[in-house]
Amino acid sequence: MADDRLIIAGREFKSRLWVGTGKYKDFVETKKAIELSGADVVTVAVRRVNITDRSKENLLDYIDPKKYTILPNTAGCYTVEDAVRYSRLARAAGVSDLVKLEVLGDERTLFPDTAGLIEAAKILVKEGFIVLPYTNDDPIVAQKLVDVGCPAVMPLAAPIGSGLGIRNPYNLKIIMEMIKVPIIVDAGVGTASDAAFAMELGADAVLMNTAIAGAQDPLAMAEAMKYAVHAGRLAYKAGRIPRKLYATASSPIEGML
């Protein structure tokens, strides 16, 4: 798999597992988990600097932007205006032109507002952003996002943080077949088999946060996810056998008594 590279907007990524940096106990655990996961893309959120307690350390003191691709997100944005504003702030903070675009439609499900998402993507692409949109498992919306200039699409597997796994493998499969840009399954993974399943379906990468950070042992889960994504990718490339209702003997009949 030496030449099995993931390339998005001309950038090459070594790992097909991308990870978030939220919900960890502390920055030391965050750093260790990311190292064990083998991920080279890490998502971060954009928030106000704590000006009253300056003793607080900065996440990027632990996650070296020279070593990792920092992918700022617009988490928590419910309007096109907010998502665009946060994207611009992220870029101004000087990490890159990449943004994981989220425009949310509902607080309980955190499902995306896909109409707003497409509109925000359009604005940001025009401003030169590399927009990676967090979207529903809807092939038509995915295509519209590509049409406005997104170089990859990130459909959800299940609601963010739900751990429900791949709820609609058929829709994801259709997206992977129809859409001609890399597909990164984002959100909803609960355990290693979910990540492997996403990759077996043909995902180009998987992004997760809670599945690792929320595990009983986040470091062990980070490592499990690394192997799961790798195994799933290998299985996808290998090509699985077709499903059949009845048995097919794998030992020859010849030579039997």
């Binding site: 965050t30 971060v44 106000r48 700022p72 963010i160």
Partner: peptide
Amino acid sequence: EIMSFIGGGSSSR
């Protein structure tokens, strides 16, 4: 407004 990066993966309130 002075903004910076914090830990986060996907959306949260």
